[in-house]
Write a protein that binds this DNA or RNA. Structure first.
Lengths: 337, 337
DNA sequence: CGAGGTGACTAGACCGGTCTAGTAGACCGG
DNA sequence: CCGGTCTACTAGACCGGTCTAGTCACCTCG
C-alpha cells in the first residue's frame, strides 16, 4: 500500500495515478465539471478518499487567476458588527471565499482600512455601517463589487443589505401602545439615514395611533453617554411612561440614569432599545429590543458579493429585511392599568 | 510608453523586461534576498513602481508550498477577544500572514472550530481562552505550532501568552487599601486557572496588608448574572466597603444589583472589574479595572507563531505580561474618611 | 600566470492546479 | 460504408512566482 516514500501531502497527480486516469480528469471530477462518466467520478473520489487527497486551494486560485478574498470593514467595538461578522464568516466559508478583516479604529479610519483591503487585492468589499462619502463609494464600486450593510444610499452601482428601520420602530411603538402607553418619547440617533428612518417610524406610528400630540423627540446618539444625557433632560418637564431609544447602547445609558435617580424600569417607565445586541440579552439588562437578523443580513451580503463576482448578476440589488421585535422585561404596562 | 495591449496586472516578467534584467533577479530583489547590487535593486524597484507592479501572493505561496494562514479561535460575544483580534489582525498583516477566523458559538464548539481551521490547512493555531483538554492540546501541538492566549497550562510543546492575573488582582487590592478600604470582598470566577490566579492574588494582597481576617470570597462567575447573584448574597451579612470582581461583566452585574437595591457606587461601596473592556470604559459605567494589554498580547502571540513557523525557535515560549491598573470612578475612599 | 574564489546575474525546472486542443471510440442517418 | 456528432478522456501549456544550477567577469594569491 505505501511502498512509495511519499512524505508530503498527496496531489492530483497521485490521485490520477491511483485511479488510473489523467490529472486533467481528476480536476474535472473535483470541480464537478462536465466530461466524466458517473462511474469514473466514483472511482476518482474513492481513490482520493483512499490516499487522503484534498485540493490545494493556492494552486487552484493561481490557475484561476483569482484569490477569492472578500474584504470586510467593521468596527471592533460594535457588538452588532461582531455578530454580523460571525454570520459573514460562516456564509463565506460555505461558498469557499475568505474574509479579510479591515478594522476601523480611532487611529485607522475607514478610508485607511479600505486601502489596506485593496492592497490585499480583495475581489469584493463588504462595508458594515460605512461612513464613506457618496463620491468615495461610487468610485470604489466602479472598480469592484461593493456591498453596503446597514446604510441607505442611492447609488446605482452597488448592492445594499439593510433592514426596514422605520417598520422596526413602528413595531416598538405598536407594542408599547398595546400595553397601554400613550406618553411615549423617542431618543433619536442623530443625523444619518438610519436614525432618520427610526425617527420617522416612531412619528408615523404615533400618528397612526392618534398620539400625535404626545410625539416628543429628544436629541440622543448611539452611545450610552447619549442615552444618559437624554434621560437627564427628560427629568425636566412632563414624564413619559415609555421611552424608545435609537439603539441598545443608548437605551442602556438611559436606563442607568433613570435607575440611579430613583425611577424604576419597567415599573415607572418602560424602555426599549434596538439591535437586540448581546448586551440587551443579558439577564441583568433584559431589554426589549428589535432584531435586525444579523445572520440573515450576513447571508445576503455574501450572496450579493459572490453573485457579482461570478457574473450571475450585474444589476444593483437592494435587500430590505423585516426587523423582528423581541419583547423582554424592560417593557410593561404603565402604572395605573 | 504603453504600446503593448497589456490589459491585465503586470507580472514579474514585465518588471524584468522594463528593468532589463531577468525574472529571477526581480524575484531576488523583491524578496530582499542576497545576490543583487544596490544599483540594480534601485533600478528594479523603479521599474516596478513605474508599471505599478505588486507581487502576486498566490503564486508566491504556491512556489513556497505554504499558505501563511494562521487559524484563530475566539468567542464573538467576548469583548476582550474582539479587542485581541484587532491587535492580532494588525500584527499578522505586519508580518504578511493571514488570519483565518474560527468563531466559537453555542452550536459550534471549540473542537469544531479547530477542525474547520485545520480543513483550511492553517499552518499555526492561536487559541483565545481555549477550553480544550490537555490531551487535546497536546495532540494539536504535535501537528503544528499552537499558541495559547490567556490560559495557563503546563505543556511543553506549545507557546503561551498571558498576563500575570495574580499580580493584577494584587494591584487592585493595593489600590483599594490605599484609598482606606479594609473590608474588601472578592467575587471569584469559578474553576479554571485564571480565576484561581486572581483569587490567589486577592488572598495574597489581603494577607500582605494584614487584612487576612477580612478575606471573604463569594462564588461568582464570568457573566453579569453571576455578579448579580453574588451581590444579592452580599446583602445578607456584614457589608463590605469594596468589592473586587473576577471581570468587568461580573462587576457590572454586581453594580446593577447594588444600585437597584439602593446601595450607591462608589459612595457606599467601591467596585472593580478586570479586563478593562469597552464596557468598563463607557461613561455611564466608568469602572476601575485592570488592562491585560490586549495589543501587546496580540503582538506576542503572532510573534510566537511566526517564529515557530519560520524555524527561528523550537523551544516552547511562555510570555507573562504585567497587567496595568486603570483607575476610574467606581472606586473611592470608604464612607467616613 | 593559472587555480580558485566571489559577487552579479540568468535559464529553466518546478509548485499543483486549470483549461485548451485534440484523440479514440460509439452511435447515427443516409 | 462514410462523414458527422457526441461522450469520455488525455497531453501539455499555462498561471506567476521561487529556486537550483549554472555562466561570466573580476579579484587574489602562490
Amino acid at each position: 500500500m505505501s511502498n512509495a516514500p511519499t512524505p508530503s501531502v498527496p496531489t492530483m497527480r497521485d490521485v490520477a495515478a491511483a485511479a488510473g486516469v489523467s490529472k486533467a480528469l481528476v480536476s474535472i471530477v473535483f470541480r464537478g465539471a462536465p466530461g466524466a462518466s458517473d462511474e469514473t467520478r466514483a472511482r476518482v473520489f474513492a481513490a482520493a478518499e483512499q490516499i487522503g487527497y484534498r485540493t490545494n486551494r493556492t494552486a487552484s486560485l493561481l490557475a484561476l487567476r483569482r484569490n477569492k478574498h472578500i474584504g470586510l470593514t467593521m468596527r471592533v467595538r460594535n457588538a452588532f458588527h461582531a455578530e454580523l461578522v460571525e454570520g459573514l464568516q460562516a456564509a463565506a466559508d460555505e461558498v469557499d471565499y475568505r474574509l479579510v478583516l479591515g478594522t476601523v479604529t480611532a487611529n485607522h479610519d475607514e478610508r485607511h482600512a479600505v486601502e489596506t483591503l485593496l492592497e490585499f487585492r480583495c475581489e469584493a468589499l463588504i462595508l458594515l455601517g460605512s461612513t464613506l462619502t457618496r463620491a468615495g463609494l461610487q468610485e470604489l464600486a466602479a472598480t469592484r463589487p461593493v456591498v453596503l450593510v446597514g446604510r441607505r444610499v442611492s447609488l446605482d452601482n452597488l448592492d445594499i443589505v439593510r433592514s426596514a428601520d422605520d417598520r422596526g420602530m413602528e413595531a416598538v411603538v405598536d407594542h408599547l401602545v398595546s400595553l397601554g402607553h400613550r406618553r411615549i418619547v423617542h431618543i433619536a440617533g442623530g443625523p444619518g439615514a438610519i436614525a432618520a428612518d427610526r425617527r420617522r417610524g416612531y412619528i408615523r406610528a404615533m400618528r397612526r395611533h392618534g398620539l400625535t400630540e404626545h410625539t416628543r423627540i429628544l436629541t440622543g446618539g448611539a452611545s450610552e453617554a447619549d442615552g444618559w444625557r437624554a434621560a437627564e433632560e427628560l427629568e425636566r418637564g412632563e414624564q413619559p411612561t415609555a421611552i424608545t431609544a435609537f439603539n441598545d447602547h443608548c437605551a442602556l445609558g438611559a436606563v442607568d440614569r433613570l435607575t440611579r435617580s430613583g425611577t424604576s424600569v419597567p415599573e415607572a417607565v418602560s424602555v426599549t432599545g434596538y439591535d437586540n445586541s448581546f448586551v440587551a440579552q443579558l439577564a441583568a439588562v433584559d431589554l426589549t429590543s428589535v432584531s435586525q437578523e444579523p445572520a440573515v443580513q450576513a447571508q445576503w451580503a455574501i450572496q450579493a458579493a459572490v453573485d457579482r463576482l461570478e457574473g450571475r448578476r450585474t444589476q444593483p440589488a437592494q435587500v430590505v429585511l423585516e426587523p423582528r421585535l423581541v419583547v423582554r422585561g424592560s417593557t410593561a404596562p404603565p402604572l395605573g392599568t
